[in-house]
Each structure stands twice: as structure tokens, then as C-alpha cells.
């Protein structure tokens, strides 16, 4: 059954990364806020949920929700000093914030176990279902993705979503039409944080073990690759990107087992491809595989 197991693992990862990529897409694709530290939100969700469940013995549902809230709160916090600044400053501040969260996880051993990581993270309903647990978890992830996709689509189709696009394309104009752009930026960072935190929490309970190694900047670059390849300001694009990049990433790791160049070089080669893919897409097909859809209002009035 290894192939079947591997496939289920791959599809579960599609789901987790689809959530993660959608959270970035909301910030970058819709609102134009360049976030190079999205992994921090993922890590916060993962650690908060894992620690609350493992160390405080809280129910998993509470852990996941707390993980989302922690990460959403972090989004507000990060947006606060930078909300009136240009995108370059967002980029560097978020990048740095991502590193600080990782340093915290690495250094505060009393809380996070440092480099050893958090082990034996409980899984939802693990006693009840055992034989087909990974199928169950995959279905769970699938449902979460569907719900989040629906909610995000509702948001991006709403006047709120329109405000985001206006900030992205013409911030001055939005201000001149009375939009409180700073507040909207804080909101979008919070929502992006909630979703990324959810992805992180689900990741933690799936992997059963997390350590700072899971939350390297590499993860942020991967999801950037996903939204650049898949297409920004389009949630389907984010999901497609997650599938494409994740397939490439996981399958090359698989191949790496059979090619005698060592895992380090293999992973370097893999990241070169992803970097070049990002550059070439931005030059030759900047809109990505699935372009942003034009919003029209069929004659209903």
C-alpha cells in the first residue's frame, strides 16, 4: 500500500498548502501587500495549537481555533507599524517577522522545546478511527479547504474584496473615495493570518511532530511560487498553484531517493527550479496560469 499511502499524503498536503497559498493570495493577490514572512503565521498556528493540546491538555478543536486567533492577532500586530508604508517596507518587515518567530521557537525551550520540537501531537478522533485514519484526515482537510474557499470567495466578491483590489491598484483613489485604507490593511492581514494559522494547526495535527525545521523561510517561497504560477487574485489559481508546486516538490524528493546526488544537492536543484519558475512566470506570464477574472454584473437590474 505504500503508493496509496503516498498518494493520500500528497493530496492532504495539497489541501494544507492550498489553504496556506489562499491566505497569501488574499494579501498579495487581492490587496497587493507583499508578505515575505507568511511562514510565521503558519508556524504560529501550528505551535499554538500543538502546545495548547500537548502541554495544557485542551481539546484539539480549541487548539486549532486558538492557533487561528494567535496568527490572526499577529497579523494585526504586524500590520500596525507598517500600515501606512509602501510595499517595500511590508516586504522586509514581514520577512524579518518570519525569522523572529522561528528564532523564538528555536530559543524558548521552556515553551517550544527548541530545536527538538513538539512531539506526540494528538490527532482528532484518533482513537475512533484507526485503519483508514489518513483517508479520514484527508477528507477532513478537503472539507476545510472547501469551506475556506467558499468563505474567501464570498469575501473577495463582496464590497470588502473590491476595496482590497482598489488598494492594490490605486491606493490614493481609495482614500479619495473615503476608504480607511489603513484599517482595511489591518483587516486583511488578520484574515490572512487566520487562514494561515488554520493551515498551520491542521499541519501540526497531521504531522504529529513539528520543529523549527518545518518553518524555514523556504516555506514562504514555496507558497509564493504557488501563487505566482497558479495566478494571483484568484483563489482557484492559488489552489492550482499549490497542486503544481507541491507535486513538483514532493515528486522530486521521491526521485531524489533513486538519484545518487544526495538530498542536499537535490533540494538545491529543486529550489533553483522554483526560483527560476517564479522569475520566468513574472516575465513571460505575469498573470499566472489562471488569470484574475473580470467581475461583471449580468443585467439584473
Amino acid at each position: 500500500m505504500p503508493i496509496a499511502n503516498f498518494t493520500i499524503y500528497l493530496f492532504t498536503m495539497f489541501g494544507i498548502y492550498a489553504l496556506f497559498a489562499m491566505s497569501l493570495n488574499l494579501q498579495v493577490g487581492y490587496a497587493g501587500l507583499v508578505n515575505f514572512g507568511q511562514v510565521a503565521f503558519f508556524a504560529l498556528g501550528a505551535y499554538t495549537s500543538a502546545l495548547l493540546v500537548v502541554k495544557a491538555g485542551l481539546p484539539i478543536a480549541v487548539g486549532i481555533i486558538a492557533g487561528m486567533l494567535a496568527s490572526g492577532f499577529f497579523g494585526c500586530l504586524l500590520a500596525w507599524p507598517t500600515k501606512s508604508l509602501k510595499s517595500d517596507y511590508w516586504a522586509i518587515t514581514t520577512l524579518a517577522a518570519g525569522e523572529v518567530i522561528r528564532l523564538f521557537a528555536l530559543n524558548e525551550k521552556w515553551l517550544t522545546e527548541g530545536p527538538f520540537g513538539v512531539m506526540n501531537i494528538p490527532q482528532p478522533l484518533e482513537g475512533l478511527i484507526d485503519k483508514y485514519y489518513n483517508i479520514f484526515y484527508f477528507i477532513f482537510v478537503l472539507i476545510v479547504v472547501a469551506v475556506v474557499y467558499m468563505l474567501l470567495s464570498m469575501l473577495t466578491d463582496s464590497p470588502f474584496g473590491r476595496n482590497l483590489k482598489a488598494i492594490r491598484d490605486a491606493e490614493d483613489l481609495s482614500k479619495s473615495l473615503g476608504k480607511n485604507t489603513q484599517k482595511i490593511k489591518v483587516q486583511v492581514m488578520a484574515i490572512g493570518g487566520l487562514v494561515a494559522g488554520l493551515a498551520g494547526a491542521i499541519f501540526a495535527h497531521y504531522m504529529v511532530y513539528i520543529s523549527p525545521e518545518n518553518f524555514r523561510p523556504l516555506e514562504t517561497f514555496l507558497i509564493w511560487g504557488m501563487i505566482i504560477v497558479g495566478g494571483r487574485a484568484n483563489n482557484r489559481g492559488a489552489i492550482l498553484g499549490a497542486v503544481v508546486i507541491q507535486t513538483f516538490y514532493v515528486s522530486t524528493r521521491f526521485v531524489g531517493n533513486y538519484v545518487p546526488i544526495g538530498s542536499d544537492l537535490m533540494s538545491a536543484a529543486r529550489m533553483i527550479v522554483i526560483g527560476l519558475l517564479m522569475v520566468s512566470f513574472l516575465i513571460f506570464r505575469p498573470e499566472g496560469l489562471l488569470r484574475e477574472r473580470k467581475k461583471t454584473y449580468p443585467d439584473e437590474v
Binding site: R162, L173, S176, K294, K295, T296
Partner: peptide
């Protein structure tokens, strides 16, 4: 409220969306 000397026109929003905005 005000308009700009150099018109601001969101690249990927339609005319109707501009109005709704």
C-alpha cells in the same frame, strides 16, 4: 471630496466596479 489631476484608474477593475467602489 476630490479628483486627481492625473486620473487614477484601477487597472483591473471595470468601469462599473469603479462606480460601485
Amino acid at each position: 471630496c476630490r479628483t486627481f489631476q492625473v486620473s487614477r484608474a484601477p487597472e483591473r477593475m471595470t468601469v462599473l466596479e469603479n462606480m460601485l467602489l
